[in-house]
Amino acid sequence: MKRKVFESLIDRYRQNKASANERRLIDHWYAELDKEDMPQYHVDENQIWGKIHRQIGNTPTKKMAFQKMLYWSGAVAACLLLCLSVLFWSRENDHAQSRKEVLLKPGFRIFETGVAQRKRVQLADGSTVILNARTKLKLDTVSFDRKDRIVELLAGEAFFDVKKDSTKAFIVNAQQIQTRVLGTSFTVKNYTGLDDISISVFTGKVQVSANSNPLGVLTRGEQIRYARNSTTSKRENFDLLTRNSWIEGRVYLKQSSFAELALAVRNIYGVELEAADNLISRQLYSMPLSRQLSWSATLESIQAIHHNKSRKEGNKVLIY
């Protein structure tokens, strides 16, 4: 009977059906509880119910007026309700705080490829990135796609096929260069062995900046080469058919520098190619490179273009 009175009072209080007198009694008990120290992490329900039972049991029910009985049962119900509320709030608060701390901590992921390796990465927003050999792409897994979609090309070359989202810009940071789009496809090349960083557009429009200074807006078939040392840029057209041939494992050099040649050789074969002098380093090369062709055959082709010779020195091949 005591438990039924107790449960009935709880139900009325939760459903906002308690009378003004009942609510006043419960509010009074709340005020008394504010003066006590409440356990924040552990509540012994058996101990609480024992206390309730003793308080109800010690009251002479035959002589107790209905209103007095209601007072005690209401007070006890409020006590239990408050204890359980404090326990629930404490645990939920701890969990919420824990979740908040996790969200605030940056979580970075590095996507990386080795020699002669290419990798396709699917981002959370639906965009696709294809990494060329010896490439590192950095992604903040916490902040990505919350406001803007920002990635960082630490080194190498990557083709971005960006899912259109007019509310969130897609931004690629590559040292001083920032490439900003809403939905398009383009390639960013940022190899440390080259003097410049290049951005080449295949579809849509791309806005390019260097240290927050606008370099221009590129459309299909256009690219910008930004010189790291001189901080100058050059805008030009490129061959749409051969620019991204590396995705299929081939590279087509067209009047390319020795540095471009050495980069392609290292990416495909893992061989360090070095010019013996400035004359060699200023030579231009037009030729295809493919993993399907052996390194010895490729080296013969490289030598034949300018009638050069080669020799191996440690881990390097010297062209002279």
Results as ranks from 00 to 15, higher is better:
residue 190 N to Q: 03
residue 288 P to L: 02
residue 90 S to L: 04
residue 215 L to N: 05
residue 168 K to T: 01
residue 60 P to Q: 14
residue 247 I to T: 04
residue 313 E to Q: 07
residue 91 R to V: 04
residue 49 W to Y: 05
residue 231 T to L: 12
residue 221 G to S: 14
residue 20 A to Q: 05
residue 116 A to Q: 01
residue 158 A to D: 05
residue 196 D to P: 01
residue 31 A to D: 14
residue 281 S to Y: 00
residue 268 I to V: 14
residue 92 E to M: 08
residue 128 T to A: 10
residue 79 C to T: 12
residue 215 L to P: 06
residue 31 A to G: 10
residue 72 W to C: 00
residue 55 Q to N: 05
residue 193 G to T: 11
residue 232 T to R: 14
residue 276 A to G: 15
residue 291 R to V: 00
residue 134 R to H: 07
residue 312 K to Y: 02
residue 56 I to T: 05
residue 314 G to I: 03
residue 246 W to P: 05
residue 272 E to A: 11
residue 59 T to H: 02
residue 36 E to A: 06
residue 304 A to S: 13
residue 107 G to Q: 13
residue 277 D to I: 04
residue 280 I to E: 06
residue 205 K to F: 05
residue 16 N to R: 12
residue 257 S to I: 08
residue 193 G to F: 00
residue 284 L to I: 07
residue 207 Q to F: 12
residue 84 L to V: 13
residue 2 K to Y: 03
residue 219 T to V: 15
residue 35 K to S: 06
residue 98 S to Q: 13
residue 85 S to F: 12
residue 256 S to G: 11
residue 60 P to K: 14
residue 47 Q to I: 04
residue 62 K to H: 13
residue 273 L to W: 07
residue 264 A to K: 12
residue 1 M to I: 02
residue 31 A to C: 03
residue 61 T to M: 14
residue 22 E to T: 11
residue 176 Q to G: 08
residue 283 Q to Y: 09
residue 227 A to Q: 14
residue 39 P to Y: 01
residue 123 L to S: 06
residue 85 S to L: 09
residue 161 D to P: 02
residue 132 N to T: 09
residue 312 K to I: 05
residue 62 K to A: 11
residue 80 L to I: 01
residue 172 V to R: 08
residue 171 I to S: 11
residue 100 K to T: 09
residue 61 T to I: 14
residue 112 E to Y: 02
residue 260 E to G: 00
residue 49 W to R: 09
residue 41 Y to A: 06
residue 232 T to Q: 15
residue 10 I to K: 07
residue 21 N to S: 09
residue 235 R to I: 07
residue 62 K to G: 00
residue 74 G to L: 00
residue 84 L to Q: 15
residue 265 V to S: 11
residue 138 K to I: 13
residue 13 Y to A: 03
residue 234 K to Y: 08
residue 159 F to R: 08
residue 145 D to G: 02
residue 267 N to A: 00
residue 94 D to Y: 10
residue 190 N to M: 02
residue 86 V to H: 04
residue 225 R to T: 09
residue 193 G to S: 11
residue 191 Y to G: 00
residue 94 D to S: 06
residue 210 A to V: 10
residue 277 D to F: 06
residue 34 D to T: 02
residue 169 A to W: 05
residue 114 G to W: 11
residue 123 L to P: 01
residue 147 K to N: 10
residue 41 Y to G: 00
residue 281 S to P: 00
residue 154 L to N: 08
residue 296 S to M: 06
residue 37 D to I: 10
residue 67 Q to D: 14
residue 291 R to Y: 09
residue 172 V to L: 06
residue 58 N to S: 07
residue 240 L to D: 10
residue 157 E to G: 09
residue 312 K to L: 09
residue 242 T to Q: 07
residue 72 W to T: 03
residue 135 T to A: 04
residue 232 T to F: 10
residue 205 K to I: 01
residue 55 Q to A: 08
residue 35 K to Q: 12
residue 242 T to M: 01
residue 316 K to D: 03
residue 234 K to W: 07
residue 138 K to G: 09
residue 104 L to F: 11
residue 121 V to C: 01
residue 169 A to P: 07
residue 93 N to Q: 12
residue 138 K to W: 14
residue 259 A to S: 15
residue 91 R to T: 07
residue 107 G to K: 12
residue 246 W to S: 03
residue 81 L to Q: 10
residue 37 D to V: 05
residue 69 M to V: 05
residue 55 Q to K: 01
residue 264 A to M: 11
residue 181 V to F: 06
residue 89 W to T: 05
residue 120 R to Q: 05
residue 156 G to W: 02
residue 129 V to A: 13
residue 278 N to A: 13
residue 26 I to P: 04
residue 192 T to A: 03
residue 140 D to H: 14
residue 127 S to F: 09
residue 304 A to D: 10
residue 138 K to T: 13
